[in-house]
Every structure is written in C-alpha cells, then in structure tokens.
Amino acid sequence: MSPVETVIQLRSIAKHYTMGGEGFYALQGIDLDIYLNDYMAVVGSSGSGKSTLMNLLGCLDYPTDGQYHLKGMAVASLDENRLAGIRNREIGFIFQNFNLLPRASALQNVMQPLIYRGSPLAERKRRAEDALAMVGLQDRMHHVPNQLSGGQRQRVAIARALVTQPAILLADEPTGNLDSSTTVEIMALFDQLHEDGQTLIIVTHEPDIAYRCRRVITLKDGRLISDVANSATVISQAKGVGAHG
C-alpha cells in the first residue's frame, strides 16, 4: 500500500471526435494519477482539452480509449445507471456558469442531488442547510438563483457539489464569470476545503489561481505536457496562458 491513496488513475486516455468526416483527438495519451487531498490546477490554452478532461473525470462522458479507475473502479466499463450513481456519490461538479436549477431555491438546489440517492426529506434538509452554512449562505436559503449575486450563486453551486461528500470536487473555470474580489472569496473557500481534506481539481486561465494550487498540470493540443508541484515555473507558464486567453 502506498502512503498516499490514489483516488483517480488515468492510463492512455484518449477522446476522439469526428466532425465533418475529419477526426481529431481532443485528448490523447493522458496518464494521470490524482491522490487523496490533491489540490490541482489544470491549465492550457483555449481548446487544449481541459473541459474534455473534466467531463471524463466527472463521468459525464466516455473516453474513446484508455482506462479510468476511480477509487479502484473501472469506470469506462460501467453502464449509464452506474455512471449516474457515481456522479451522484463520488463527484461534485462546479461549472463556470453555475448551472443552478432556475426555479428552485438555494436550499432546493442543494438538496437536489440527495433526492437521487433517496435520502428522506429531513436528512436532505439538514445536510443542505449545513452545506449552505459552510459556504456562508445560511441567510439566503430561500432565494432563487436570479435573486442571488454571481458569487452567491457559485457558493450555492459549491454547497450543492459538497453536500454529497464526494470523493472529488471538479471545478471548470469556477471564477470565470466572477469579478476579482469575488474570485478571492471563492478561492479562499477552496483553500479551506483543501485544508479540510477535500480532493480538488480546478480548471483555470488565471495564474493567481493556479498559483494557489499545490499541483499544476498543463494541457496542449490534447496532450499532457507538464505535471509539476507548485513552483515559480508554474506561475510563468500560467501567466503565458493568461496572456493568451
């Protein structure tokens, strides 16, 4: 047994798309291990395959090739229903555009994933309230999304991702739609989650954010070109990307 537990193991992962008769690889030959309590940033220019990778990790999509093990399970071979179960139990997804259910209150949004696992109402409510309190929204629980600011919406989304106590939290440009001060708040929240032992993967274009993470991987044209622990090189690389986007 290794001293650090591996949560995710990718081997030779590829995602191939065919468009208009022409095929190309959005991802190719990806080997990646993600460990318990990793705090990892994914950087790379636009179109490099970051979101494609996140969707695969989040079990929203199938790789065309390669092996994906999540907590030892061979995910690629699972059927739709099992994948839904994994998304529900093991994955917390946070999107750039929040993706809250528009007619549901903050509380209902956070309770939603617990419905799919059949938790009774009282338990759902208690856990959702706890999660909302953790992101500092205990007094906004009955607001619907369009009564909340962008930062508050993203906090609801984070609470919703956390409420199921997932093995891994995936955030695809979580601060992309937020101003700088709100970005700082959200990042502080991620730092806190990392300290509490959560495993996080964050896609970002912003060097500041990449810098806060403990590990940074870089994608280029669907290939993993670097995987480094946080250092000055990362910052300069991330800066290059930032200037690009």
């Binding site: 989040g58 929203l60 739709e80 229903n81 839904a84 179960g85 998304r87 529900n88 139990r89 997804f93 993706n99 809250l100 259910l101 528009p102 939603q112 994933p113 419905i115 799919y116 696992r117 919703r160 199921t164």
Partner: peptide, 16 residues
C-alpha cells in the same frame, strides 16, 4: 434541456 443536463450531472438516472 439544460436543466436536464444539470440533473444528470448531479446523478439523476434515466429513470429519474
């Protein structure tokens, strides 16, 4: 459609 996508991302099965 988008809401359905969100629900699926949160773990809703086809049956749900």
């Amino acid at each position: 459609t988008r809401e359905i996508g969100i629900q699926k991302a949160l773990g809703a099965t086809r049956f749900d």
